[in-house]
Amino acid sequence: MAVTILTIDDSKPLRIFVERTLSAFDCEANESNNGFNGFFAIERARPDLILLDVVMPVMGGLEMLERLKASPELKAIPVIMLPSPGDHAYMEEIKTLGADDFLMKPFTAEALLEKIRSFVTLKARK
């Protein structure tokens, strides 16, 4: 069964970058543009891993992370936060709220794959 990864970020170019990076693997890449819509995407996709932006409209990543980790059904899903350089003020809160890891923007495809592989196994498409 393919790994399912959900990217929640208000930057469409970043979501496309993640999808293209994962396209070489037997992986289902899903996306959402904010935390509020992200919960609907979680219901549909049942991801094995979530890549989560910090600052977004409607519901930001910190609020979403807090809700995810408080939910008995969702707290086991690993979350890699994707902070921007301007998000340094949130780093302690990211750790306190229970993020499993983080990857500072901007990042390379190789760095993204390295982080993802620390949580799930990616198999090349045949």
Rank of each mutant, 00 (worst) to 15 (best):
K115M: 05
E110L: 09
A2D: 15
L51K: 05
A24M: 08
P78S: 10
G98D: 11
D10N: 15
T96A: 15
N33R: 14
D101F: 04
R67F: 11
P47L: 01
P57K: 10
V54L: 06
L52H: 03
K115Q: 11
A89Q: 10
I8S: 06
V3C: 12
L74R: 11
I94E: 02
T108V: 08
V58D: 14
E63T: 12
R125A: 10
K123F: 11
L113Q: 07
S84D: 14
S84T: 14
V120N: 05
P47W: 00
G60L: 08
H88K: 15
R125M: 09
A89H: 12
L22I: 04
A111K: 14
F102P: 04
E28M: 13
H88Y: 12
E73G: 07
I50T: 07
P83E: 05
F119L: 05
K115F: 06
F107M: 01
K75N: 14
A111R: 15
A41V: 06
S11M: 08
P47T: 01
P47G: 03
E31V: 09
N34P: 02
L52N: 03
T21L: 07
H88Q: 15
M104G: 00
K123M: 09
N30M: 13
E110G: 07
L74T: 03
M81E: 00
S84K: 12
K12Q: 15
E19D: 12
R20V: 12
E110A: 14
S32G: 10
I94T: 05
G60S: 08
L103C: 08
M56T: 03
L62S: 06
L113W: 03
T4M: 02
I50S: 06
P13V: 06
E31S: 15
T96S: 13
F107V: 00
P47I: 03
D53I: 04
L51G: 01
S23E: 14
T121S: 14
N34K: 05
D100F: 00
E114Q: 12
M91F: 13
S11C: 08
A99S: 11
A2H: 12
N30K: 13
